[in-house]
Amino acid sequence: MTTTIQFKNIHKSYRVSGQDIPALSGIDLTINPGEIFGMIGHSGAGKSTLVRLINLLERPSGGELLIDGDDITRFDDDALRALRRRIGMIFQHFNLLSSKTVADNVAFPLRLAGKKSRAETDARVAELLARVGLSEHASKYPSQLSGGQKQRVGIARALATEPKILLCDEATSALDPQTTQSVLRLLAEINRELGLTIVLITHEMDVIRTICDRVAVLDGGKIVEHGPVADVFLHPKHITTKRFVQESEHVDENEQNDDFAHVPGRIVRLTFRGEATYEPVLGKVARDCGVDFSILAGRIDRIKDTPYGQLTLALTGGDIDAALARFESEGLTVEALRDA
């Protein structure tokens, strides 16, 4: 089954003391089956509302929201409940029932659906707990677990009814960096093995960079930029996106420009992607064109499974134009930051 989520001109506003406060305006977006789609934005950008529209925890004020081609805003109560069983959700603060054991928390959605026998439920719970690596904690209560373990219970619970879509609401924001990585690995593994579509919202670039295929950047209730993660983050166009990139790389553009002011030559930024990242392109081109270069700033990293490198160079001497043309023909992206 394919599960496409389509937002068509979605609007959402809240009525606060007689006034309509817009939270989302004119959202058009298609989320493809099986992908990990990230939405990034600062608090108040509307991302929390956006993700809650998908299972109608929030109702849109206008527009159409299609899942598998059906406009879910027209669903009656029964159809909506059936839909929600096909959509799992995990939360920033886990939202586990403190009065139930780990096993009972995971069994909870199955009992609500009421379709499985006791034995079937127990078997399914055991399977889910094994998947998230918590089999030995089945009879503990949530308060006895660490944050990362709680989120794993949340994930097991969300997967219980074999959903096609998993919504993640700031799922790693309450976790330390190491735990975040392990939870993200688990999500990526689930996406790969179960072919589940994952929609996640976050304010952390690293989360997007680690597991998302595509990303939408939200600001002021609008999508200001969206596309494949590498495209959006290696070549950010909107100011909000640029800020996210700079924040995550701990770079301040103004400071950097001051630093480079006394460096002679032309300053360019080269972006390598995929296998090109590990090719000896730079040395070869410099030699051939008689150009000298000094590396002013740089980063070699991965976006999901794609290695990339981004270097800021000052070029002096030789045939700089020819060198730049060569870089481009080698598949690198060249951006001029300052002419000589």
């Binding site: 299972n55 409940r81 059936a82 929600r84 939202n95 909870f108 959605p109 609500l112 659906a113």
Partner: peptide
């Protein structure tokens, strides 16, 4: 909210 999201 979580319980609602499960279709309860």
């Amino acid at each position: 909210e979580a319980t609602q999201a499960m279709g309860a």
